[in-house]
């Protein structure tokens, strides 16, 4: 019996390591459904591509114009993500870039997210940038800091750097800014729910939730 003890002990630790690693992996993987670039184009009826989280045929569309360096936007991002989880299939989120010139690093953050998007990691970068807003906001060399985010997300770094400085990524940000101007957006966060702008006093985590709850209840599912 004693002969098998080391084998049993090593096997137990090996299995324990695999199980705990798998459980941790599952617990940390994002569960919010996101659309691929192709699905997003389909969801927007081919008119334009956009970053969409949730089901493409959801009855309620929450369109957010955000600035990654704006603290209220970061505060709202968790609530917005939670909406997609709680109303799976009924609510979809569209994120639009609207980096304000008053925020020194907002434009770079937008470029970083868009460059990550070209490797299908827009939402992971979006969440990371918002979550760590206080960490990078005061960094002197924010470009290299976002590169470390890209590395953390497992992106192809060389491609990321090339994309970040490309006209394609700049055009993505500019397109969103044009749409913002067209809709009369001047500040962030600005959110539209099914095309109607959410009043400013509802743009607080608790109130936004209540506002969307009301819209979902009054909108028949597709």
């Amino acid at each position: 019996m004693r002969r098998f003890l080391p084998f049993a002990l090593v096997a137990c630790v090996g299995v324990g390591a695999l199980v705990s690693g798998t459980l941790l992996y599952r617990a940390k993987m994002p569960v919010v459904p996101t659309l691929t670039k192709e699905q997003s184009i389909l969801a927007m009826n081919g008119a334009e591509s956009a970053h969409i989280r949730g089901e493409r045929d959801a009855a309620v569309t929450v369109e957010e114009f955000g600035d990654f360096q704006c603290p209220p936007c970061a505060d709202l991002s968790d609530v917005v993500n939670q909406l997609v989880k709680d109303y799976r299939g009924r609510v979809r989120i569209i994120f639009r870039e609207f980096p304000l010139t008053t925020h020194a690093h907002a434009h770079q953050a937008a470029l970083a997210a868009e460059a990550a998007g070209l490797q299908d990691r827009f939402w992971q970068m979006h969440d990371l940038i918002y979550r760590e807003q206080s960490t990078w906001s005061h960094e002197a060399d924010v470009r290299s800091f976002f590169e470390s985010f890209a590395g953390t997300l497992g992106l192809d770094l060389e491609r990321y750097k090339k994309d970040r400085d490309s006209d394609q990524v700049q055009a993505r940000v500019t397109d969103d800014e044009k749409r913002a101007v067209k809709l009369g957006v001047t500040n962030t966060p600005t959110i539209f729910v099914n095309g109607i702008e959410v009043p400013r006093d509802s743009l607080r985590p608790d109130r936004l939730r209540a506002y969307v709850d009301q819209v979902v209840k009054s909108t028949p599912a597709h």
């Binding site: 390591a17 940390k28 992971q124 760590e132 960490t135 960094e139 470390s148 497992g154």
Partner: peptide
Amino acid sequence: AIYLTVQALTGETLTCGGSPDCFRVLGSA
């Protein structure tokens, strides 16, 4: 090491606890 491996595979970074150095190391080539 398991914790860091899972972090690397999921892109989860809450564990850095606001430390820029942590990102510079774990996000480096």
